[in-house]
Design a binder for these strands. Structure first.
Lengths: 114, 114
DNA sequence: CGTAATATTTAAGTAAGTTATATATTACAA
DNA sequence: TTGTAATATATAACTTACTTAAATATTACG
């Protein structure tokens, strides 16, 4: 398991990227998908996820459709046009972040420095 | 520039990884090196860096040697044996983190899902 | 009949950062 | 010589993105 402190800050981008991928998803589904894609290494907490979804909706980044499945409410989220451009920005930033971390982590003694 | 929220949480690992690489470094040097390695995309703030260095010292992860250069104090930090094992753990975790982020960011529509 | 899984909500608390300020020397330009 | 930028460290006050915890409700399984 990856420590929450490390993941902190990436939540929004992760959620938005998955929504871009899947068109629409509900909260619980997002947590499942993240666990699946990361081999259980990233687990989103509901206390973090749902407030973020609500916030993104209030900002006009996401829209919701409530549906009923087996007497359980599912609230599907999908990107607005504004949301689409936000994802693009966020994903670019995350790619730069990954590149940056890699250039630090992958340092090799005696090869890159002097 | 990568947003502070994204970097937050990685600071400790970045610092430790650089110290492992360079043997010993002083605070200001660490900020320069991170900017250099990340093409200016990650800028550490002193308000974050120095408290972290002090904390790691108190935990027995780092030791210090104060030196004088041009009438300016330089406090060099280097890893203790304990520090070496901490770096190893932290770097492993970060590699898993990077892998996880990549498996989300690099999703391709219609290829991995169904 | 109890537990696990599914599904969402939200209040209270934590802590890792940011922001701002202080201090002091060297170097360079106008 | 006066001011600004770079070098070098320290720390108090504040923010906020989370974690933790508790609540609610249905389905599924042993």
């Amino acid at each position: 398991m990856i420590s929450p402190d490390l993941i902190k800050g990436s939540l929004k981008t992760i959620v938005l990227r998955l929504l871009k991928e899947n068109g629409r998803m509900y909260g619980y589904e997002i947590t499942r998908k993240v666990e699946e894609l990361t081999a259980g290494r990233i687990k989103l907490t509901y206390g973090a996820l749902y407030p973020v979804l609500h916030k993104l909706e209030n900002e006009g980044v996401l829209v919701t459709e409530a549906e009923n499945f087996n007497n359980r409410i599912r609230i599907y989220y999908s990107l607005t046009p504004k949301g689409n451009s936000v994802v693009a920005e966020k994903v670019n930033e995350m790619k730069e972040f990954i590149d940056s971390l890699q250039s630090i982590v992958n340092l090799q003694p005696g090869l890159n420095n002097g």
